[in-house]
Amino acid sequence: MTDTIAPYVRDGLTEVEGGSVGDFVALMKPRVMSLVIFTALVGIVVAPGPLHPALAAIALLAIAVGAGASGALNMWYDADIDARMQRTASRPIPKGRVTPEEAFSFGMVLSVGSVLTLGVLVNWVAGALLALTIAFYVVVYTMWLKRRTPQNIVIGGAAGAFPPMIGWAAVTGGVSLESIVMFAIIFMWTPPHFWALALFRSGDYARAGVPMLPVVAGERETRRQIVIYSALLVPLAVVPAVIGLGGITYGIASTVLGAMFLALALRLWRAEGEAEQIRVAKRLFAFSILYLFGLFAVLLVERVAAGLTG
């Protein structure tokens, strides 16, 4: 596995003529960014206190750019393994459309720019949290954990869990129980979400030498871990209704969606035969995205509706 840790060499690149604007947009992982923007928006909207809409928009933009920056830095560092995985082989660096150096500069400029913008224009607690998020994703997850331990996405998941906390901090200037609960929900959601993906992409990860749980511990252990994390996630996701962050609608929605999540996780656990396991893993993966989106959407709608009526 040691050869996978070797730094990416440019000799492997095809001729580079300079990437298009679209290639640089792709470096920012727009699909990951969209979930970051959405959860950060919810953090901003549900936080108590006034924040001028223009500053809220700037905060959201800075968080989005910060997320994009960490995506670019991740692609810079991971270009060697991206090239070996079917899912990521067409990314701009393995394709030879952007050089690793360009991606690194792009990511660094956007990182510094987004943190300074958020800090100077909104507040420094939010700015510091954004810097922590980028550092966590790039240094802790990408550089340190991803290639070393099957716990990579468990700990690394924290990076994806920060955005609503940053949004909350942009409004309140601090961290509180509510924002910690939103963080914890995404943190607990990440392992079953990624392990479901890893179950039907384990060949990809094995080829790249990434020690994802199915590769290292086998698919049976992965399915068991998915059930454990799902069982922790589902009750945790109801907590916002208990602490007053969400209302009765959220309480009902999180319970129903949670029951569906757990049912799918158990179905995956009991699934017999590889084809059936892959089919259920794909369903769980797709549903997990809908689940998280649904939870945060209900929080958002409840708060907007309360604002309109009250």
């Binding site: 604007v21 640089f24 224009l121």
Partner: peptide
């Protein structure tokens, strides 16, 4: 491509100035 990149950078910098002004 280079020209398009230059235009994108110019637009981003312009937007940044406007952002700080607002």
């Amino acid at each position: 491509r280079k020209r398009m990149r230059s235009i994108a950078i110019a637009l981003a910098l312009g937007a940044m100035v406007l952002l700080f002004y607002i």
